[in-house]
Design a protein around this nucleic acid. Structure first.
Lengths: 341, 341
DNA sequence: TTGAAAGCGCTACCAC
DNA sequence: GTGGTAGCGCTTTCAA
């Protein structure tokens, strides 16, 4: 059933039916009602292609994410974020076009999506510190929202982000106040913006307490179990081992625990650990360790908000770029850890 | 730059240009070359909407996945699978339309995608044992491929799946041959097809060795750390504790380990464990435990294949439904575990 | 308040 | 081998 047929059924012109369905004011109320009813009855849905062709809008949003580091973002933040965004899209009749893209040919893919007229806007996932995509997207001229930030770029684009810096600052301060002086940081890949900010928070807290960071106690990498194990093992076997760890991601923390366990060290007795992770429900490793976290619900919320920001920009290209910072939640474990030995 | 303008530049008709670009045979080779060159030069890309409208094909594929259980599939298989599928799509000029959908209103969303003419086919993720979507999709009439299977449905649809049954059968047999008689199964949610098949494999191996399954030693649930912990704790504290565990997912296995550790039991000394997981690179918990696994590469391969199957069906609706079973790989740990005490 | 008609950019049929 | 032209289903002037 298409518009024309529907119009014939109603003894109306396609024009009027179109207007009625799209909320134009000049349609008589009774007519509109009649049309809407018939549309429901025949389960009429406008053909997206014709509509796109006629309006120039595609009613779909491109989500582009680098695949080589996929696990960093996909797992698990990405799923929840996208679910949140979809809630908004569905409500507003938009589709979500997912484009995993190799780190290399990003520019190509963005341009293609743009030129073929396939999307009305972009969500950018997993920004690096210096992320070329922002300049690229600006040049391309479609609205976009960044999930995260790119610290080394002028901050005049719209973004939504967790306050990673603050979470790590608070976590570090907490450990310092417990009496720790040698605190290890096991971080994500530090060319990723979120990891960089976490590090900054860590350093800021040290500095404001008059502590000097020890490079031997700072490590970054893909957030795997293996990284946690290697980093902790090296540090614990080093000349002056840490008494506390601050760990990016639960998975990495598991590796840290393995290294502790191998050395007969007990968490909460010999060593303190604080974890930051965005995936609580899935992998909660007991409740013995304090966690800074973006809960699943709040990541979803972030997705919803990002989508709303983007749709607003699509509708009103002149509107100011919104920026939104969300706070991580602190969940205290049973033991916040001991004073250092 | 659109087709008409490009044609004018070349002093050709739009028709010829279109034919040249779409590989029709009746174009003179020199003309084709001229056209292709110009297209590249002006960075011409056809407007997807016009093309869709004219051809009736959307050049995009819908990936629909239930969100309520999202972590089960999203994490981490989904990312790799979709990356693989995208490789195929990009090559063939297709887009990937992602639709997270609440378990409830699936029918609606599928129909909408179909009626609005938005997709040419579907990939179905995370099938349940009795999955209504298969009947629904058949009724809707677009080609689809299921990532996984639905055991309780007639198996005449196209699917691609890991051989979960066989992996668990082999794993169980391995434990039995080591001398274990009381083997625990910590499984995923058993209304999910993959989990059901794993259980079947487990039971089959017991049966073929003349062992009777003990319901107290079988547990299913969301594959979280907590499930592993609870299940193992209950079983170990029960009247006749298991001497070996077979665990679905690395994350769950971490919980099992915690329970063991709490009780002073050591893995590889007091108890054997075999894990099945599809996410090796990310969360490899040491190399001390044997793992059945679909490697990241093979999951990607599965995505590629599924996409190819689907595109084939789209092009030739009459073609027979392909079905493809992939074998999990066994990676032996340093210790395969002891004989039972 | 409604309708007729002209496109949107492309493909595909038919004629040359 | 190439070109003219009629749609695909919708929106959007302009006219009534």
């Amino acid at each position: 059933m298409n518009l024309k047929e529907l119009a014939q059924h109603l003894n109306l012109s396609p024009t009027t039916v179109s207007r009625a369905l799209n909320g134009y004011p000049e349609v008589k109320e009774t007519t509109r009602r009649r049309v809407e009813e018939a549309a429901r009855e025949f389960n009429y849905m406008p053909n997206a292609w014709a509509k796109g062709l006629a309006t120039g809008r595609s009613m779909s949003i491109g989500h582009v994410m680098p695949t080589s580091k996929m696990h960093e973002m996909v797992n698990p933040v990405f799923g929840d974020f996208i679910t949140g965004a979809s809630e908004t899209y569905v409500k507003e009749g938009y589709d979500l076009k997912l484009t995993p893209v190799d780190d290399g040919d990003e520019a190509q893919r963005y341009r293609a999506l743009r030129t073929r007229g396939n999307v009305d806007g972009f969500i950018v996932h997993g920004p690096h510190l210096t992320d070329g995509r922002i300049a690229l997207l600006r040049e391309i001229g479609l609205p976009f929202v960044v999930h995260g930030r790119a610290s080394n770029m002028p901050a005049d684009y719209p973004w939504i982000d967790m306050n990673n810096r603050r979470a790590f600052e608070r976590a570090t301060a907490l450990l310092i106040e417990l009496g720790h002086r040698r605190i290890a940081l096991v971080n994500g890949l530090e060319h990723m913006d979120f990891a960089h900010r976490r590090r900054e928070g860590f350093l800021a807290a040290l500095a404001s307490h008059g502590l000097v960071p020890d490079p031997a106690l700072m490590r970054g990498g893909e957030m795997t179990e293996r990284l946690g194990y290697r980093a902790a093992a090296d540090m614990l076997d080093g000349t002056s081992p840490p008494t506390a760890f601050l760990v990016s991601s639960m998975v990495t923390a598991i590796g840290v625990r393995r290294a502790l366990h191998e050395r007969g060290l007990e968490l909460g007795r010999d060593v303190s650990v604080i974890i930051h992770d965005d995936d609580l429900g899935y992998l909660r490793n007991g409740d013995d360790v304090p966690i800074f976290t973006a809960t699943r619900a709040s990541v979803r919320e972030a997705g919803r908000r990002a989508a709303e920001m983007l749709l607003r920009m699509i509708r009103d290209p002149a509107c100011a770029p919104l920026q939104s910072l969300m706070e991580a939640e602190l969940i205290l474990g049973r033991s916040t850890g001991p004073a250092p030995r």
